[in-house]
Structures are given as structure tokens and as C-alpha cells.
Design a protein around this nucleic acid. Structure first.
Lengths: 246, 246
DNA sequence: GGTTGAAAGTGACTTAGCGTCATTTTATAT
DNA sequence: ATATAAAATGACGCTAAGTCACTTTCAACC
């Protein structure tokens, strides 16, 4: 049986030398033996165990847990996995909420266009929370959501401003193809779809916004993502062409 | 103006005494004064700031970021928020994948009801991962060539690109303030920081890229996000000014 | 004014998973 | 034998505090 030096293990597994030494120190993965001079030697058994460790890491377990799992011969895998799943789900829910709050804020900032906007939000938040003395994490989230509901209608529809930016960028990039090119028309169609998705097409105010987007003063008045006059003109042309064809 | 002792601040805000001392130590939230004996005293101003900190924490910012935000009078909120959003999205994607893997495993374990089921899966994984080319620093150079693909171009999923776009957009918008204005210089500083973050700043090759960014042919040659000549010139001016000052 | 107990202070250690030096020792090739 | 690569150990850094240990100050009561 050929024994491997630490650097060879690294090359095979992709795990850094530092990490391997750390695993040794933590008693998570010990080398099968050492040379007289103290250099670590690994066999294929350790290699396999190492890959199991890597796998368990990819599903989010901590090294301590992994150690316990691999140390005990009869581990209750299903209960561990279930527990891990609910933990991961909770984490994801937290992030989903953060993402939601961020989107609301971004819309607020982008549409209102001034930095005091976010400061206002924060002030509102502090006023409300001052009345509620006890600290409770669940409570914080609820109050936060309440504050965000007070934002203008615009943002509560959760417009994906990032995709708008991407679409406009695409338009800009491919302008030289001409407004009737299929690529351009695809982008325009997506924009129109998105306009309907985001704003339902029922609210006059939102159609207004589409027009505002088309106007050269957009960036001055509404602090939207700045768009070149050229791109705006081109978008208008392409949009007209699109409307004629449907 | 009534001043509060640390325990009263804790009762009102829910932030632990240890945390308040930590914030003081980090220069994030300093008490307005101290008693002769060194006890911390807070005013309503600090309370308010504390609640802003808590709010920014709920949307996932780190304390360091929060410090920078609250320290600078004119913070580029939209760029920060965009960056944070893409970061959160990436985190969520990771968790989604973990969740998927976990569900597969649980199904396997639950259906089969035997522990060898998961061990099989793990073996499968080891086989798979063995095919993945090993991590090698020499290889980094090759992959660095792919850095070009990471440059600001329009793709709504690329975290870095979004912030670049936001920053360039901000620059465009506030150009009329002049290149030496603090707001502009803040944006430039962030760009320079970001340049270092993204590319490490150690490789000449990457400095080259910064120069390429500065060249008007960038969008033609490298498929970068198209930037107006005016903005590029302005950016160059502001950047020179920034370099002179540091 | 002295004592006392509560509250405040500081400092050090802990968490996870390594990265990144710095320094010294071992293995290997010539 | 020596040069050099590669290995070893040790220490510090990162987040955002929690926890422990020990010391000092505050406020009130006798």
C-alpha cells in the first residue's frame, strides 16, 4: 500500500495543506502514520474519509458534527439530515426576508432618488421600536415589515429593477444591429412583458412611469438608472416597431 | 438632556451591555461622555444611531460596512444596497442547492431505511469529485484569463458587475458636481477599493485591466459595459485627483 | 464617613475554518 | 555535502459578540 505525502493528498483532493493539518489537529482526519522526521503519511482509507468529509460539508454540516458522525459506527443519519434540512430552510427563510427588504429599499432609493429617503425609513423604524422595550428577534422582523408597507405603492409591487438595468444594458450593447433586428425585438418584448408583470398594466400611474422612463429627463427627475439619450431614442424606435407588428 | 447609563440603554434598545461596550471599542457607537469613574453615558442621539445600526443589521450588513456608512455623510446607498442584494442572492442560491442535496439524501435514507444508502451516495460523490481537476495555484494563472469575463458587462446574476454598473451610473449622474467633490471622490474611492477586492491588486495584469477600463475602446474589444467617453474622461480626472490626495 | 451590594469597568478566552506569514527541520537530488 | 523544495510548528487574523474572572465605581444606608 502506497502512502501519500500531504502535498500529494492536496493535489488529489483539492484540500489545502493547512486544512489537512487542521483536520489532524482537530482529530477529524489523522494520517495513518508519520515518517521519522514527523511528516504526515496518508493511505487511501484517509483519502476516502476525506472525501466523505468534503461531501458532508457541501450539505452544510459543521466539522464538529461531521466528526461525531464519522466517529460513531451507527449514526442516526435520517434524524441528522432532517435536522439539517430544517436548519437550512430557516436560514433560507431569513435570507428571503432580507432579500425582500432589500428590494423594497432599493426601489425606494432608486425611485425617490435621494439619500434622505433611506434615512427617513430608518428614522421611522427607530420611532416605532422605541415604544417596544423587550428585545425579541421575531418581533423585530414583524415591525420591520410594517415599516416597509408604508412605502409608496410602487415598491410594494416588487419591481425587479435589476432586470431593467440588464435589459437596458442589452439594448445599449446591441444597438448597432438596428431596431428591427430580432435580438432587439426580443429584448423589447421582454421589456413589455416585464412592464405588465411588474405593474399589472392596470395602474395608470405605472404606465406613466413607462413613459417617464422614455423621457430624457428621467434621470434628473427620478434618479432612475441613468440612460443615454441615444439609448432612449433607440428604445422608442424599437418599441414603436414592436407595437406595429403585434 | 438626560443621559443614560449603559444598563438603561440596554433596557430600551435590547442591545446587550457587552455589545454596547464592543461597539464603543470598535468606534461604531461611542458614548457621548463618561462619568469621572469611567462609566459610559449615552444621549438620545446615540440611541437613535443604535437603532439605525440595528436596522442595517436586519438587512444583513456587517458592522464594518455599517460603520463606513454612518461615518460618511454622503454615502452611496444605492450601490451598497445593490451589492448587498446580489450577495444575499448568492447566499440563497447556495442554500437552495444544499437544500436540494439534503432532500435527495433524505428521500434515499427514508425510502431505503438503511444507513448504507447514504454511504453509497457518499461513495458516488467521491468518484465524481475525483474527476474534478485538482486545485493548483499554477492553474490560477490560466483561470485568471477568465477574469476578463468577469468585467462589468450586463448580466443580472453577476454580483460584481452590478456594483460596477451602479458606481458608474452614480458617477454619470453626479458629474456636474466636478471631479473633486466629496461625493465623487467617495465613489472613486469605492471603485478603487473594489478594484483591489476583485483583483487583488498584486497582479500587473489586473492593473492593465483598470487601464483598459479607462480606454474608450474597452466596449469594442472586451465586451464591457459600454461607458460614455464623457464619463470615462471624467472618471480619469477624478481618479487622478484621488491618487494625488492619498 | 465607612461599609456594602449592585452595577460598571477591563481583559482574556471561545466560537469555525481555515489563510497567511515566520521560522525551523526534514527529505531529496546532484 | 550541499542546495533547495517541502514539511513541520506556532502565531495572528477574520465576525460579532458570549462568557468568565477579577477590579473599581456608584448610591444608599448606618
Amino acid at each position: 500500500m502506497k502512502l501519500l505525502h500531504i502535498n500529494e493528498v492536496k493535489k488529489i483532493s483539492g484540500v489545502s495543506v493547512r486544512t489537512l493539518r487542521y483536520y489532524d489537529q482537530m482529530n477529524l482526519l489523522k494520517p495513518i502514520s508519520k515518517t521519522e522526521g514527523g511528516h504526515r503519511l496518508y493511505s487511501s482509507i484517509e483519502l476516502k474519509k476525506l472525501q466523505q468529509i468534503q461531501f458532508l460539508k457541501t450539505i452544510g454540516f459543521q466539522l464538529k458534527e461531521i466528526k461525531k458522525m464519522l466517529d460513531s459506527e451507527e449514526w442516526d443519519w435520517s434524524s441528522s439530515l432532517m435536522k439539517q434540512l430544517s436548519y437550512v430552510k430557516a436560514q433560507k427563510d431569513d435570507l428571503t426576508e432580507i432579500e425582500f427588504n432589500l428590494r423594497e429599499l432599493i426601489n425606494g432609493v432608486v425611485i425617490d432618488g435621494e439619500d434622505f429617503r433611506i434615512k427617513k425609513l430608518m428614522d421611522l423604524y427607530s420611532k416605532k421600536s422605541r415604544n417596544i422595550p423587550p428585545y425579541d428577534k421575531a418581533d423585530l422582523r414583524i415591525r420591520n415589515a410594517e415599516v416597509l408597507n408604508k412605502l409608496p405603492k410602487m415598491s410594494s409591487t416588487d419591481a425587479d429593477s435589476l432586470e431593467w438595468i440588464a435589459l437596458i444594458g442589452q439594448l445599449n450593447k446591441h444597438m448597432k444591429l438596428g431596431y428591427s433586428h430580432s435580438r432587439i425585438q426580443n429584448i423589447i418584448r421582454r421589456m413589455d412583458e416585464k412592464r405588465l408583470e411588474d405593474y399589472g398594466g392596470e395602474d395608470d400611474f405605472l404606465d406613466e412611469l413607462w413613459k417617464i422612463r422614455m423621457s430624457p429627463q428621467a434621470s434628473d427627475n427620478y434618479n432612475l438608472y441613468p440612460i443615454d439619450q441615444k439609448v432612449l431614442d433607440f428604445m422608442q424606435q424599437a418599441y414603436n416597431h414592436y407595437l406595429e407588428k403585434i
